[in-house]
Write a protein that binds this DNA or RNA. Structure first.
Lengths: 98, 98
DNA sequence: TTGACAGGCAAGTGGCGACTTGCCTACAAC
DNA sequence: GTTGTAGGCAAGTCGCCACTTGCCTGTCAA
């Protein structure tokens, strides 16, 4: 029935949406960087394991890609799956008054 | 932290997404029409109460507006809240090769 | 090689949300 | 009025999901 249920499940959680905000602001962060910034900037006191699981969900949805380098794992945002949303339920264009 | 959590909660359920598909195909249906078409076209055997609750969630998210007329209540889709998604996490434009 | 750091895996728990059940209100035709 | 139709309300159940807890793997510096 549904093309990619993982996408909507990933967007369904507020913490995961904040992670996407954080990666939009600064792309390519590690898990510990994201943890620190979520605590500092957004006032979220989430554990490392919780964030790790969130990142796994985001990666499964194709919204985040990872790149390993030594003992670091960098996370990169990919917003292209969001395109399927506006393609599925077209948004009426605002015609700018000429 | 989050502008409209109701929007993402509404999109989080597969049945609600199918309802949006159905309203995209034919706008302004009543509750019983939606029930019938979900059963026929999409093979969903959802009860009237379940669909009613789904429609309430969609309306709270601003994705569906209702219009009463006699004992009928017509449901209309409104995709404009979806705009906030692509505005929040901008999608890289595909430049058409000139 | 030992310690510290970055991350992973898996079982268990608690709360929220989808769905049911049962009864009620409103409008219309007869 | 009575009957049938369209929809609403509220309590209860059940399963999934976010989060925790505990331990393990891999990498780098000393």
């Amino acid at each position: 029935m549904d093309a990619r249920p993982d996408l909507f499940r990933a967007l369904g959680d507020a913490t995961r949406r904040t992670i996407l905000d954080e990666l939009t602001d600064r792309d390519g962060q590690t898990l510990f960087e994201i943890c620190g910034r979520l605590t500092m900037k957004h006032g979220l006191a989430s554990s490392r394991q919780a964030i790790s699981q969130h990142l796994a969900v985001l990666e499964q949805a194709g919204l985040v890609h990872t790149r390993r380098q030594g003992r670091y794992k960098f996370h990169h945002i990919d917003t292209s799956p969001l395109r399927s949303i506006v393609e599925r339920w077209p948004i009426d264009r605002e015609e700018p008054t000429p």
